[in-house]
């Protein structure tokens, strides 16, 4: 992640992963904490990349991603004060404020 941040948009060969370009970083605020992802990732991608697996309260424990393609609504978050945004469908934009939701 930090490599991506240092090399915003520059081209580099990493061989091991087959990636040739290091994408620019994207920074979002998750419950007030700055989280860095890679430009183009969904909010779910950024959250998972930061080590989080669950971010929504439900009746029997927490939920995170389940279907990954906008079908199940497990991954809902509040983004910039708008409720009910599917984290797996919304691309992260610099400065997005992401908050958890609870649905029991």
């Amino acid at each position: 992640m930090s490599a991506a941040r240092n090399a915003r948009g520059s081209i580099r060969s990493t061989g091991a992963t087959g990636l040739t370009a290091v994408p620019a970083a994207v920074e979002i605020l998750v419950e007030g904490e700055t989280v860095t992802g890679r430009a183009g990732q969904t909010i779910a991608g950024v959250l998972l990349g930061s080590g989080r697996v669950a971010w929504r309260g439900a009746q029997h424990g927490e939920r995170g991603v389940f279907c990954g393609i906008g079908v199940c609504h497990d991954c809902l978050v509040t983004v910039n004060d708008v409720e009910g945004v599917r984290a797996c469908q919304r691309e992260a934009v610099d400065g997005d404020r992401v908050e958890r939701e609870v649905r029991e």
Partner: peptide, 12 residues
């Protein structure tokens, strides 16, 4: 499919 989408689209 989620595992596939997250790998192919988000690289995670």
């Amino acid at each position: 499919g989620a595992a596939q989408a997250l790998a192919k689209r988000d690289g995670v």
